[in-house]
């Protein structure tokens, strides 16, 4: 039923409008001055050294990949949760196998040391 989403749409419009008004107000009320020093990013009072978009550890990237893999698999658990009672033991065993595969994946990642942070 698409009509159920109508209140959310209106709510969204009001919420976004409200945030827009707040930002606009601050735009109107706040003062505006520009100096070279003011516009440089904060680095404890020093002039910034090098580019801010510097390299960071690859572990964050790996975590993001794990998230995509595991989250997509976790999504399958939700529909099963809804029809869990009608499906009974059959569903539980099927999902048990699925969760076991998920757990094996996690154990593999764990064993490879991909979850370690030094």
């Amino acid at each position: 039923m698409l009509i159920n989403y109508l209140p959310i749409l209106i709510y969204m419009l009001i919420a976004v409008g409200l945030l827009g008004v707040i930002v606009l107000l601050s735009e109107l009320l706040g003062k505006k001055t520009h100096t070279v020093q003011k516009d440089i990013p904060y680095e404890c009072g020093m002039d910034p050294i090098g580019d801010a978009r510097s390299r960071y550890t690859v572990r964050f990237y790996i975590i993001a990949m794990f998230f995509i893999v595991f989250d997509i698999e976790a999504i399958f658990l939700y529909p099963w949760g809804v029809v869990f009672k009608p499906l009974g033991w059959f569903g539980l065993v099927e999902m048990g196998v699925f969760i076991a595969i998920l757990a094996v994946g996690l154990a593999y990642v764990w064993g490879k040391g991909a979850l370690e942070w030094e």
Binding site: P41, P48, A52, S54, Y56, F60
Partner: peptide, 17 residues
């Protein structure tokens, strides 16, 4: 475009996901 902000943003994203 600030180092602290970038680190905070990446930490935040990794933690939240």
């Amino acid at each position: 475009n600030s180092k602290y902000a970038l680190l905070g943003g990446i930490r935040g994203a990794a933690q939240m996901i």
